[in-house]
Design a protein around this nucleic acid. Structure first.
Lengths: 272, 272
DNA sequence: CTTGACCTTGACACCGTGTCAACCCGGAAG
DNA sequence: CTTCCGGGTTGACACGGTGTCAAGGTCAAG
C-alpha cells in the first residue's frame, strides 16, 4: 500500500492529479480509509496509472483516456480514435513547423535589419464573394498605367449599381489577369448580391484557400513597398504565390491618396 | 469607420476577441461612442490588428504580443524572445513528432493484434538515488540463474541495514552489469541515506535521463513477456536502449510470487 | 412605429494543473 | 503523554484564449 504521496512520486504525477483522477473516476485508490479519508494505492495500480499517463502523453483528453482504459470501445472504435489523433497530430506538426519557419524568418530579418518589421503579413482564408464588376485592358501591371484605367471603371460600376438600385455590400476589390500581348485585364469588382443590371457582370470570386495578405497604407503608387514585403514573406516562410494579388479598398479619400488603405491578398500554396 | 462586426469579419477575428483586446488595452477602437458604448474601428487599425494576429499565430501569449507591438522592447530583447520561442517550438516539435510516432506504433499494433495492448510502457526520468548495496556474480542473465543469487543478497542487505540502524527509504532495486567470461554482476540495492555499515557499499545510482519503464505483475520467471513488450516499444518508437534494465520491487509476497509487482526501467536515447 | 440585425456588458464554461488556506492524522522525538 | 512536523484532507481560485448565453439598448430599413 502506498500513500498518495509515495504513489505520486513513483508514478511521476502530482498528488493533485491523483485526486483529480479519483474525482473523475479515472483511477480510484484501492483503499480509502473511511474515517480519515486517506487514499491508499496498491502496487498493481501502477499499471493502470501508466496506461492513463501513456494515453495522456499521446495527447488524448482525460475524458477520452477514461473511455479507452475502461474499454468501452471496440477495437474498431479505437482504431478510429487513433487515426483521428494521428491526423490531428499531423496537422499540429505542420502548424508547428510553419510557426517555427516564421519565427526563424523574423529572427533573420531582425538580425539583418536591426529592428522589428512593422508591416505584418498574415495568412488567411478568403471566402468566395459575389460581386458586380466591369473590366478593361491596361497596357501593363504598373501603378501608373493601372490607376487611370481602374478609377473610372469603379466609378462606372458604382453608378450602374446605383441606377439598378443595388447596394454594395462590402469593400471594392481590384484584381488582375494576364491578357494578350503582355497586356493586363483589370477588374473593378464591388461586392453585391446578384441584381438585374444588364450592363454589369455578376459573378462569384472564388475562394482563396490560403492567401498571404498585407495592409497597405497610402498612395497606390507606393504599393511596391508592401508588395515586396509580401513577396519576401512568402519566400521566407516557404510558400509559393500564384497569379496577381487582389486589392481590397478599405478606405478611400478622393482628396488625399495618403489616407488610402488597401489590403493586398495573394493566393499561396505550400510547395512540396 | 467599421463597426466591430465588420472589423471582426474582415480581420478574421471574433468580435468577442476584439472586445477582449480592447479590455487588455491591446487594440482600442479608434472611436467609442460615449453614449451607446459602440466601438468603431478605422481602416488603418487593420495593420495593428494584423500585427497582433501575426504575433499570436507565432504562438506568443497576448501579454507578450502586447509588449512586442507596443515596442517596449529593444531589438536585443526581441531577439531574445524570438530565440526563446524558437527553442520552445523546437521542443514542441520534437514532442509532437514523438507523440505521432507513438500513435502510429499503437495503430500498427492494434491493426496487427486486433486489440489494445494492456501493458503500457511509459517514458520517464529516473532521479539519482542513494542506495546501500551488495553484489555478486551470476552465471547468466536469466531468471533461473539470477533469482537464487539475488534473493539471499537482498536478505543480507536488509539484515545489515537493520543491524546498522539504518532505515530503507524506498523500494529495493536490482541492477546488472556485464562481468568477466560472459557472467553477470547482480546488484541488490536498497535506497538509504549514507550510513556507517562497513559491510555494505553506499553509493548513488546515477540519474537516467530518459528511461522506458513497464510494470510487470507476477513471477519474475515470466519477466520475459514484459521485457519483450518493452523492447518492442523501444524499437517502434524510435529509441535505442542501453545496458540492462533496473528492476524495482514495488510489491513483494514471500509466499506467492504471483503477487509480486516490479517496475523495469531501461535507459534509452533518441538515436540521431 | 415595428422589425430584425447588431451592439453593449457581464457571467459562466472549458481543461489540466498549480497553489493556497484551513484543518486533521500519523509517527517519531522528548 | 505531549509536541512537532511532514503529509494527508477538502474546497476554492487562478491561468489563457475563446465560445456562448442572457438581458437589454441601438441602428437602419420598411
Amino acid at each position: 500500500m502506498f500513500t498518495i504521496g509515495d504513489f505520486a512520486a513513483f508514478g511521476q504525477v502530482s498528488a493533485r492529479m491523483l485526486r483529480h483522477y479519483d474525482a473523475l473516476g479515472l483511477l480510484r485508490p484501492a483503499v480509502v480509509d473511511q474515517v480519515t479519508g486517506y487514499r491508499y494505492y496498491s502496487a498493481d495500480q501502477f499499471s493502470r496509472l501508466n496506461r492513463i499517463v501513456a494515453l495522456k502523453d499521446l495527447g488524448f483528453s482525460l475524458q477520452q483516456v477514461g473511455e479507452i482504459v475502461d474499454a468501452k470501445l471496440s477495437a474498431e472504435e479505437l482504431r478510429g480514435m487513433l487515426r483521428m489523433r494521428q491526423a490531428q497530430l499531423e496537422d499540429e506538426l505542420a502548424r508547428s513547423t510553419a510557426r517555427l519557419t516564421s519565427v526563424e524568418a523574423r529572427l533573420r530579418l531582425i538580425e539583418k535589419e536591426g529592428h522589428m518589421p512593422t508591416d505584418d503579413v498574415i495568412l488567411k482564408r478568403i471566402a468566395p464573394l459575389r460581386v458586380a464588376e466591369l473590366s478593361a485592358i491596361s497596357p501593363s501591371y504598373d501603378g501608373a498605367d493601372i490607376g487611370p484605367v481602374l478609377q473610372p471603371l469603379f466609378g462606372q460600376v458604382f453608378e450602374r449599381l446605383w441606377k439598378a438600385g443595388v447596394n454594395p455590400s462590402g469593400a471594392p476589390i481590384a484584381y488582375y489577369e494576364d491578357a494578350e500581348n503582355d497586356t493586363i485585364r483589370v477588374h473593378a469588382a464591388v461586392p453585391a448580391e446578384a441584381g438585374t443590371a444588364a450592363d454589369l457582370e455578376f459573378l462569384e470570386l472564388p475562394e482563396l484557400d490560403q492567401a498571404a495578405t498585407i495592409v497597405h497604407q497610402g498612395d497606390m503608387m507606393e504599393a511596391d513597398r508592401s508588395m515586396q514585403t509580401l513577396a519576401r514573406w512568402i519566400e521566407d516562410n516557404g510558400y509559393r504565390s500564384q497569379g496577381y494579388a487582389r486589392e481590397v479598398t478599405l478606405q478611400f479619400d478622393e482628396n488625399d491618396p495618403a489616407n488610402w488603405v488597401h489590403e493586398f491578398q495573394i493566393a499561396v500554396t505550400t510547395p512540396d
